[in-house]
Design a protein around this nucleic acid. Structure first.
Lengths: 221, 221
DNA sequence: TTTATTTTTTAGCTTTGCCTAAATTTTACT
DNA sequence: AGTAAAATTTAGGCAAAGCTAAAAAATAAA
């Protein structure tokens, strides 16, 4: 049985490796991800290495062992299932669920997660469009592009998710009712200013700068 | 913000005071309730006393302060609402929910509990028949008697809840489909053996010894 | 290839929440 | 009342998980 802290380290390492694509996560990156000191990280790496949850060689960072990876994926599964529950059942907005799911994911009960998954209808994606691993740790892949790269005038795109999960960003999208499931029509692209002009299904016109539009996952509808 | 451990102490003290009816809870009783040593309890009592959550006088036990009582009731509210969720939504049996609710009750989010309460339809009682405090800490009182004291032949009783929450006891009741909401007709009472003979709505005959029947809350139907 | 910078580790300390053993206080009994 | 028993507190320690400061190793720069 792992402590909450140990679980958070595994998740942090998984995230760093996933987003960087590298084989090893550095002490510094882990410290920054968790908001702790590098010295604390070294301590924990030794501990998790002793438990054979990760492969650690002094001064050269860590990778997850098979079991470590399994546990990390299980945590991500739990986190995302709880997010679905909070949004679809308790009607939370997608920018409000992360902190709560962060706590709920540490509740220990396989049966609970199994039943929650069933209750929710075995969802494949969470409210931010991220895939939910199934109980074996495998998840659905889908073709997706970032909105900023689609410039075909008059083409329609379906919003699948977002790459950034920060509250202010999500709240901003919310004010324009941009969230997974929405359709947008591309009206214009200003290549000098890098601004998209889009139209919603309700015929509202939206202008999105490159900073924003490059954080939105879509597929051609 | 309290730690999980601090919260468990407040809850334990509340429970002891409630069931004993005394004004103060002893160090020994708290230790036994939480499965820790009396020395550990003394440490924590000083700490919670410093935070003004309880009134502590050395060697004479503790009582909860107004704020301590409020927090204890909030925890009981959270615990019982989660139990309702687990039973009614995720279809857990009533003997399986305690351990999970024990973890869920420590998730920190007022909004979450408010919405869960609403989602569940503001239930007044949990799956064991215990009252759920509302958000102000007040709960519904209802007239109830223990089954063992009702001997009027041919009278009907409605099961309201149980006084004991131990798993084996609940599982035993389950095998006879005795749980809140069920109606029973009293067929006979053997005053020598102290055994009730009862009939269910499905015309099954059940024999209950005094040990069991005195742990079941009912009201005349 | 030295030297400087960055990263990582080690050493030593703090807090939380628990423990055992010993000392103290209260309570119960004769 | 005086003593034995029970309950409580104090003292001293331990493991988890964090910290800072100093030492060591790896990387980058001159």
């Amino acid at each position: 049985m792992l402590t909450v802290s140990e679980e958070n380290y595994l998740k942090a390492i998984y995230k760093i490796l996933e987003r960087s694509g590298e084989t090893n996560a550095s002490t510094k990156a882990i410290a920054s991800e968790l908001g702790t000191s590098p010295a604390s990280v070294t301590d924990m790496l030794r501990k998790l290495s002793d438990k054979e949850l990760l492969n650690y060689e002094k001064y050269y960072g860590v990778s997850l062992s098979r079991e470590g990876q399994r546990l990390a994926l299980e945590l991500i599964r739990k986190h995302r299932l709880w997010e679905v529950f909070l949004c679809t059942q308790l009607r939370f907005a997608w920018d409000e669920v992360h902190e709560i799911a962060e706590q709920l994911e540490h509740v220990q009960s396989d049966e609970l997660i199994q039943r929650l998954d069933e209750f929710l209808g075995y969802p494949k994606f969470d409210p931010h469009g991220d895939p939910i691993p199934n109980k074996n740790g495998s998840f659905t892949f889908r073709q997706q592009s970032v909105l900023s790269q689609i410039r075909n005038k008059d083409s329609e795109v379906l919003i699948l998710g977002v790459r950034t999960h920060q509250k202010p960003f999500l709240q901003y999208l919310d004010t324009m009712s941009i969230h997974p499931g929405r359709k947008l029509k591309i009206r214009q692209y200003n290549s000098f200013e890098k601004i998209h002009t889009l139209e919603t299904e309700q015929h509202e016109i939206i202008h999105l700068g490159h900073e924003i539009s490059s954080e939105i996952w879509v597929r051609l509808a």
